[in-house]
Simulated assay, not measured.
Amino acid sequence: MSKATLATVQGIKTSLEKEVAKGDDISSESVKDMLDQLDKCNMTMAVLTKSLIGTVVSKLKKHDDLGPPAKALVKKWKKVAKDAEANKQAKKAERRSSNNSAAAAAAAAATDDQPLANAEEWDDLLPQQKIMCQKLHKFLRTHKPALVKDGINEEAVDHLLVSRATEIEAAMTTKFKNNRAGYAEKARTLCFNLKKNAQLAEQVILGQIEADKLITMSSEEMASSEARKAREEEAKKLVDSKRLDWDQANEDKINEMCGIKGDLLKASLFTCGRCKSVKTTSTQKQTRSADEPMTVFVLCLNCGKRWKC
Results as ranks from 00 to 15, higher is better:
M1H: 05
Q10T: 03
V20A: 08
A21D: 11
D25R: 06
S30T: 07
M34I: 02
L35N: 02
M45H: 15
S51Y: 02
T55D: 00
S58N: 07
S58D: 02
L60Y: 01
D64F: 10
G67K: 13
P69S: 04
L73I: 01
K76C: 04
K82S: 03
D83A: 07
A84Y: 15
K88N: 07
A90G: 14
A90V: 13
K92I: 05
A104I: 09
A110I: 01
P115N: 01
D123Q: 12
D123K: 14
L126N: 09
P127S: 02
K130Y: 13
Q134G: 00
H137I: 02
F139L: 06
R141E: 08
T142P: 09
K144A: 14
L147F: 03
V148C: 12
I152F: 13
I152S: 07
N153K: 12
E154S: 15
D158A: 03
L160H: 09
L160N: 13
A165I: 03
T166S: 11
A171W: 14
K175M: 06
K175H: 04
K177Y: 08
R180F: 09
Y183G: 04
A184D: 15
E185M: 07
C191D: 08
C191M: 07
C191L: 15
E202V: 14
V204L: 01
G207H: 06
E210A: 07
S218E: 07
S219L: 03
E220K: 08
E232N: 09
A235G: 02
K237W: 06
D240A: 09
L244V: 15
A249S: 11
I260H: 04
I260P: 00
L264R: 08
L269H: 01
G273F: 13
G273I: 03
R274N: 10
C275R: 08
V278Q: 14
K285E: 07
E292K: 10
V298H: 13
L299T: 12
L301C: 07
C303L: 12
K305Y: 13
W307D: 00
K308G: 06
